[in-house]
């Protein structure tokens, strides 16, 4: 097996595992940059996966095989954005402890999802979806020599959507007035307020956007990897996305890089059988590799990262 073939085996699954994490971690970046902790990413992904799967099952006849998954993830994203509104109301308007509210989001999403699945399907999990995303060769790009086969063939459009969105969100946060305002309410809301920025509005927008992105992440996970919805469809991916966000130092491209790293490390245990020098490594080492490598990376060369200054504190007008 030569190097090119090896890369062709290793890169596509890495991208495949990374995509849902990228979306969700970007959502986390948006929320936390505005000063609202989002432990609820897991719950937002659960809601996204639930809506994505149920919508897909219910409307496959209406939209057909090609468009159903796309409409599903869009609907899931909007529903999750509305769901995130709960977190926004609690933590911004009601000044709830943001960690507590996020934990409640996680429980609530799972409760609602499983309750309705039991209600509608009469069992613990949904049927398998008929119209998931399929791998495809991206036109034009996949015919580039060397790069084409490694990155653009046998891949998912959603993966590339994730990477493009990471760049777009980077540009929004760091290159537009909206982004500057978003960051300023997360760093020093009082200063932002004196300059006429509506702190509450900015934070509401940011939290709902994080719901939108979490919904995309969850539904894409469900429609590329899990294929149905049950209690274990999303188990910890939201927390991995949270870790990717912190690992990436609250930076969209950093979060994307961290998510790609997690995806790559996760794919190792899946593809190890086909890679010569990994074949003899006991499975357990490959399984724990992503997590241990992350800890080592953080301890070794990434070092400390500082959260946005006002993270976790509600903004109370007039208080110092």
């Amino acid at each position: 097996m030569n190097l090119l073939e090896m890369l062709q085996t290793m890169i596509p699954p890495a991208l495949f595992f990374a995509a849902p994490l990228i979306f969700t971690a970007l959502g986390g970046v948006l929320s936390e940059r505005s000063g609202v902790i989002n432990i609820g990413l897991e719950g937002l992904m659960i809601m996204g996966a639930f809506v994505g799967v149920v919508f897909n099952l219910a409307f496959v006849d209406v939209f057909g095989d090609i468009w159903t998954p796309w409409v599903s993830i869009l609907v899931a994203a909007f529903v999750s954005a509305l769901f995130a509104l709960l977190h926004a109301v609690a933590s911004i308007t009601f000044r709830a402890d943001q960690v507590v509210s996020g934990v409640a989001i996680n429980f609530l999403a799972l409760g609602i999802g499983l309750f309705l699945v039991k209600q509608w399907y009469g069992k613990g999990q949904t049927d398998m979806v008929d119209a998931p995303f399929y791998t495809a060769d991206i036109p034009v790009l996949s015919s580039i020599p060397v790069i084409g086969p490694i990155f653009f063939s046998n891949t998912y459009y959603t993966t590339w959507l994730a990477i493009v969105l990471a760049i777009v969100i980077y540009l929004i946060i760091f290159k537009t007035p909206f982004g500057l305002r978003l960051r300023s309410v997360g760093e020093h809301p009082m200063a932002a307020d004196t300059l006429g920025i509506n702190v509450v509005k900015m934070r509401y927008i940011a939290v709902m956007l994080s719901g939108f992105m979490g919904g995309l992440g969850g539904s894409i996970y469900a429609l590329t990897i899990a294929m149905d919805f049950s209690h274990s469809t999303i188990s910890g991916q939201g927390f991995m996305a949270l870790a990717a966000m912190i690992f990436g130092k609250w930076h969209p491209l950093g979060a994307m890089g961290a998510a790609l790293f997690f995806g790559f490390a996760q794919s190792l245990s899946v593809i190890s059988a086909t890679i010569p020098f990994l074949q003899d490594v006991p499975q357990v080492y490959l399984l724990i590799a992503p997590y241990v490598l992350t800890i080592l990376a953080l301890a070794g060369f990434i070092g400390r990262a500082d959260a946005p200054k006002a993270l976790g504190s509600p903004y109370i007008k007039g208080s110092r």
């Binding site: 709960l86 609690a90 933590s91 009601f94 000044r95 709830a96 402890d97 507590v100 509210s101 934990v103 409640a104 989001i105 996680n106 429980f107 609530l108 799972l110 409760g111 609602i112 499983l114 309750f115 039991k118 209600q119």
Partner: peptide
């Protein structure tokens, strides 16, 4: 009644406790 209802109740209790301010 599906058992999952309790998860919703628990989540809402946590929400309400968190929103103690209101």
């Amino acid at each position: 009644v599906p058992t999952e209802l309790v998860d919703i109740i628990v989540a809402l209790i946590i929400f309400f406790v968190a929103s103690g301010y209101i």
